[in-house]
Design a protein around this nucleic acid. Structure first.
Length: 379
RNA sequence: GGAGGGAUAGCGAAGUUGGUCAAACGCGGCGGACUGUAAAUCCGCUCCCAUCGGGUUCGUAGGUUCGAGUCCUACUCCCUCCA
C-alpha cells in the first residue's frame, strides 16, 4: 500500500494534457496543480486560513532549511510538520537538492553526500540521501523528494552524465532509507539538463526503481524556455502514465500552461510569492510592476478581471503606496493576489482539459497576457 | 551689542597639508531583475546637454593661484554661548 496514488481522470483531446487526482494521507487534489512554496514551514505572509481561502491544496516545505532551523527533531516533537504549522492538507518537502544548486558556493559534492557550509552560521554540515530521507520522515510530509543534484545550466555532458548517474544511485539510497512508505510517498527526480540521452537514461534509471511519482528537475535554471519545453516533452514519454509528474521550480503563467500541455501534473515555484514581495504582480493582461510611478494615481484594482480579496478591496495606488513605504500589508496583499492568480489559472486549465479545449484556452490566455507580442519577454 | 561654530547635489552627510572632485556614503526618486526561497532581496540610473564628449556647480560677490568645495576679503543667512 503506497501513500500516494494517482488517478488519471481524462486526457484533453486537443492537447493531451492530463486531468487527474492525487490521493495523499492528508486528502486528495486535482491536477494539474500549482503548489505554493513555504520553505520555512510558512508560505511567506500567508496564514493557512488565507491559503485555504484561495484554494491552495498542497504546499511545499524544505528539508535543508527546516533541518537547520528549527531542526527536524523539534518539528517531530510538535507532532509533525502539519501540526507544527497548522496545515492539515498535503505537504510536499523538497529534499535539499535544490540547495546543492542555489548554495553552490557553500558546498562540496562527493559520492556519499554533500558537504554544506551552513549559510547562517558557517558551521560545516553533511547532507546525504539517507539523512535527507530521515529528516523528511521526521517532518512527516505527504510527499518526500529524493535527494538529488540540481546541476547548473549550462553543464558539460561529461559532468551531467556523472551527476545523473550519481543522482540515480542516491535515489536508490533514499528509497532504501525510507522508513514510512505507507505514510509518505517518495518521488524520484529525473535530471539530465539539456541532454536527451541523459534525460532518457535518468528517467529509465528512476522508473526501474518504481517510485509513486516522478519529478523533472534541473530545468528553469537559466536555460531558454524552448529547451525547457523540449526537455519536458521528451522526458514524459519515459514516465509511467499512472504516476504523477511534477515539474520542479516552474511558475510563470505561460510555463504552467505549456507544462500541462506536455503532460505535467504538478508545479511549484517561488516566483509568485517572491515577485509579489518585490512589487510585481501577475495579471490577466501580463506582469504589472505596481511600484512604477505611473500607478501613483491609479485607483483601479491590480487586475480588473480578478475577484480575489486584494482586487476586490484595494487599488493599485494604495498597494503601490504600501510597497513603497515597506508596509507589511503590501507584501500580504500582493502575495495573496499572485497566488490566487496562479491557483485560479490552474483551475481554468483543469476546466479547459475537461472541455477538451486547453489549446484554445492557451491561445486566449497568451493573447491577453501579451505572450504573443513580438517584444514579449520575461514573463 | 560681544564671542564662537556653520552654510556641499531633492534631504542628511563626507570632503579644509589647494590639483587624481561632477564631488564618498546613506536616504529619497526613477527603472530593471527575480522560476524545487541565503530574497520584504539584488542590480542600474539619479546637476544640464549629449554617442564619444562637452557645459555649468559646493550660501552670494570679489580676490590669491598655472589651478579653489578646500586659502583671503566683504556680505547674507542659520546655530550656540555671553550681555
Amino acid at each position: 500500500m503506497t501513500a500516494i496514488r494517482y488517478e488519471l481522470i481524462k486526457t484533453c483531446k486537443q492537447t493531451g494534457a492530463r486531468l487527474g487526482r492525487v490521493h495523499t494521507p492528508h486528502g486528495s487534489f486535482e491536477t494539474p496543480i500549482f503548489m505554493p512554496v513555504g520553505t520555512l514551514a510558512t508560505v511567506k505572509t500567508m496564514t493557512p486560513e488565507e491559503l485555504k481561502a484561495i484554494n491552495a491544496e498542497i504546499i511545499l516545505s524544505n528539508t535543508y532549511h527546516l533541518w537547520l532551523r528549527p531542526g527536524e527533531d523539534i518539528v517531530q516533537e510538535a507532532g509533525g510538520l502539519h501540526q507544527f504549522m497548522n496545515w492539515d492538507r498535503p505537504i510536499l518537502t523538497d529534499s535539499g537538492g535544490f540547495q546543492v544548486f542555489s548554495l553552490s558556493d557553500l558546498r562540496e559534492i562527493e559520492e556519499k553526500g554533500v558537504h554544506f557550509r551552513n549559510h547562517i552560521s558557517g558551521e560545516k554540515l553533511f547532507l546525504t540521501p539517507e539523512k535527507a530521507t530521515q529528516i523528511q520522515n521526521a517532518l512527516g510530509s505527504d510527499i518526500m523528494m529524493a535527494f538529488d543534484e540540481c546541476p547548473p545550466f549550462p553543464a558539460e555532458h561529461k559532468y551531467m552524465k556523472d551527476s545523473v548517474e550519481r543522482t540515480s544511485r542516491w535515489a536508490e539510497r533514499c528509497l532504501a532509507a525510507h522508513q514510512r512508505p505507507e505514510d509518505q510517498g517518495l518521488f524520484g527526480i529525473v535530471q539530465g539538463g539539456e541532454y536527451k540521452d541523459l534525460r532518457k537514461q535518468s528517467a529509465q534509471d528512476l522508473t526501474s526503481l518504481d517510485f509513486p511519482g516522478y519529478a523533472i528537475g534541473g530545468l528553469s535554471v537559466g536555460e531558454p524556455k524552448e529547451i525547457m519545453n523540449e526537455m519536458v516533452e521528451y522526458t514524459t514519454q519515459f514516465l509511467p502514465t499512472d504516476k504523477p509528474r511534477y515539474l520542479m521550480g516552474v511558475g510563470s503563467a505561460d510555463s504552467l500552461i505549456d507544462g500541462a500541455i506536455r503532460g505535467i501534473d504538478m508545479f511549484d515555484c517561488v516566483l509568485p510569492t517572491r515577485i509579489a514581495r518585490n512589487g510585481t504582480l501577475m495579471t490577466s493582461q501580463g506582469r504589472l510592476v505596481v511600484r512604477n510611478a505611473k500607478f501613483a494615481r491609479d485607483f483601479s484594482p491590480l487586475d480588473p478581471n480578478c475577484d480575489c480579496y486584494t482586487c476586490k478591496n484595494y487599488t493599485r495606488a494604495y498597494i503601490r503606496h504600501l510597497i513603497k513605504t515597506d508596509e507589511i500589508l503590501g507584501l500580504r496583499l500582493t502575495t495573496y493576489h499572485n497566488l490566487y492568480f496562479l491557483l485560479n489559472l490552474m483551475e481554468q486549465v483543469r476546466e479547459a482539459i475537461k472541455a477538451d479545449r486547453l489549446g484554445d484556452f492557451r491561445e486566449e490566455f497568451f493573447e491577453n497576457y501579451g505572450f504573443n507580442k513580438p517584444d514579449a519577454k520575461n514573463f
